[in-house]
Computed example of a mutant assay.
Amino acid sequence: MLQLKNIKKTYNGKAVLNGIDLDIDTGEIVSILGPSGSGKTTLLNVILGLTDLDEGQIIFNGEDLSRTPMKQRGFNIVFQDYALFPNLNAYENIIYGLKNKPGVSTKREVRELIALLGLGNHLGKTVDQLSGGQKQRVALARTLVMKPRVLLLDEPLSALDGVIKESIKERIKTIASDYNLTTIIVTHDPEEALTLSDRVLILNEGGISQYSTPREIIHNPHNGFVRQFILNQLEIKRNNIFSLFEGAYA
């Protein structure tokens, strides 16, 4: 279990994160959702260890990681821009991290992961030859071969649409299930969060407005902000998302 206890972070005298308490179960997919400036990216970076917290604790399986450097936490992130190496082909990108830690994944495990992500026919392609969805899958594979204890995804679907987007969503779900991998996703898209996650954390001005299952958020928003944020953001997509939670706002 990943536990956040009273996480606080201030920039230039302004509280960006103000007392975040959170429990995330092993193998759970949790999306962090909220308007611009709500603290989503800061919270992700604090969990990763990229940003130091001012107060509070980050505890993973009973171990206090609050002051542990990022490289020693064993948490890995797939950035929004994928951060692939343009001078390497897809396969070379996937196994890049294994050069320094060759025993982390066996060749068989790498092959199985490549098959799971449907990348077998794209391994020799350069980054420029890959589609957006293929780049996303290569970035996922590169991270997963390192067997992270927690997988962090920063806007993983923002550059995708249609069938490709739905395909990546299903692969993320499969990976979390098959590997029992705790997965934390930052997204600006309520539809993404509500259809992909086991639980959704809604932030507003650095605090938690609601942390619940998607169905609970739709049927029982905790306050006016959550209700308005979800309704306003989903106005264009309401037929798509509301069909999953019949009768919520009939």
Rank of each mutant, 00 (worst) to 15 (best):
I77Y: 01
L194N: 05
G132H: 11
T10H: 01
L88T: 11
D81I: 05
G49M: 06
G206K: 02
I77G: 01
S177A: 11
L48F: 00
V145H: 10
A193C: 11
T10V: 07
A248P: 07
N100W: 11
D178L: 15
I241T: 05
R215M: 11
T26A: 10
K5D: 02
F242I: 08
Q72C: 06
D64Y: 05
Y249G: 13
V104K: 12
D25I: 02
V46W: 00
E216F: 04
T187Y: 09
L33T: 03
F225Q: 05
L33D: 04
L157N: 10
T68G: 05
A15K: 15
I217T: 11
L113H: 10
K40T: 00
N87G: 02
I217A: 05
G13L: 06
G27I: 03
I175Q: 13
M146C: 04
E205I: 02
L244M: 15
L48T: 03
F229M: 13
K8G: 04
Y82N: 11
Q57N: 12
E112N: 15
A139C: 07
T195W: 10
D198S: 14
L140I: 10
D154R: 02
F242C: 12
F60C: 04
A90Q: 07
N204P: 02
S36R: 03
Q129F: 08
A159F: 11
V186H: 01
L117K: 13
P69T: 03
N240A: 10
L201C: 00
I58W: 00
L144N: 11
T68L: 12
G74P: 08
K101G: 02
Q228F: 08
G206Y: 01
I172F: 03
I58E: 00
T143E: 01
H222W: 05
V186P: 01
T183S: 08
N6W: 00
I59D: 01
T213Y: 05
V150K: 01
E112G: 08
N121P: 04
E55N: 13
L116K: 14
R111W: 09
K5Q: 10
I217D: 06
N61L: 05
E28Q: 14
I32E: 01
P214Q: 14
A141P: 07
Y91F: 15
V46N: 05
I164E: 06
